[in-house]
């Protein structure tokens, strides 16, 4: 009976307590890392937000149309707060990874390593999207103004096409960076772009060949415009 008591009940309990005692420092370390990480995340997020407010990120975002785009996307907070929150959650994510690493469990370690290895790609993809978005705004505004000044009636459609074109390139580049369906994205994008260019060329060739002829003659042959210009001299 005594033997049964020792083997069946006490031994597992002893093993369990030994295991718990072995893991306890790791759990304690994880708790400390998480706690420090949370404090650091709060501080860094707060400092980043204040710093960006001081250097006028919100004003710059207003001018670049980023704030308006965020509002259109349902994001009501200002960009400084948004970047501050992003910094906060990045630090929290690092703290969680570091905390889990402190547990020294093989599957968790592998996951943390994979996540950390993927982070630069994630960051690059995000950067590509942001730059692509800003560039698309700039290009579409320039195209819209040029089209209106040239008297092209569907100016807004032309500008919208240029905006979506640039954004499409940015999304394709970001997806390629993330390694998501690389071949499909690259080939799909190539097919779409080729189709658009071909369609445009056919449409232009059929519908505007006289316009193209006049344009080229004017450019290459210094031929004056056919339409009677105003006798106004602006300068």
């Amino acid at each position: 009976m005594k033997e049964f008591w020792e083997k069946a009940l006490l031994a597992p309990l002893e093993t369990l307590s030994r295991n718990v005692l072995a893991v306890l420092p790791n759990v304690l370390a994880m708790s400390i890392i998480l706690l420090v990480g949370l404090v650091a995340a709060w501080s860094i997020g707060h400092v980043v937000e204040r710093l960006l407010r001081v250097i006028g990120l919100d004003l710059l975002s207003n001018r670049l149309g980023v704030s308006a785009a965020l509002a259109r996307g349902g994001v009501k907070t200002d960009p400084s707060h948004l970047v501050g929150r992003t910094a906060y959650w990045l630090v929290v994510a690092f703290a969680i990874m570091a905390g889990l690493g402190a547990l020294n469990l093989q599957p968790l370690n592998q996951f943390a390593q994979s996540f950390l290895a993927y982070l630069p790609r994630l960051f690059t993809a995000a950067l590509i999207l942001v730059v692509g978005y800003l560039l698309s705004n700039f290009v579409s505004q320039a195209v819209l103004i040029a089209a209106v000044n040239a008297g092209i009636p569907p100016a807004r459609i032309v500008a919208a096409c240029s905006r979506w074109g640039v954004q499409l390139v940015a999304v394709a580049m970001a997806l390629e960076q993330l390694g998501i369906a690389q071949n499909i994205v690259t080939e799909g994008f190539g097919i779409v772009l080729g189709g658009v260019v071909l369609a445009g060329a056919i449409a232009f060739g059929l519908g505007a060949k006289d316009l193209a002829k006049e344009f080229l003659e004017r450019r290459l042959g210094n031929k004056p415009r056919d339409r009677a210009p105003d006798d106004l001299r602006h300068l």
């Binding site: 209106v148 000044n149 008297g151 807004r156 105003d230 006798d231 106004l232």
Partner: peptide
């Protein structure tokens, strides 16, 4: 007398009003 196409100028202005209002 000089040739001035006022219609074209006004239509250019109105296209601006229609398309460039946000700017």
């Amino acid at each position: 007398p000089v040739n001035v196409n006022v219609d074209r100028m006004i239509s250019s202005f109105r296209q601006g009003l229609a398309d460039l209002e946000p700017i």
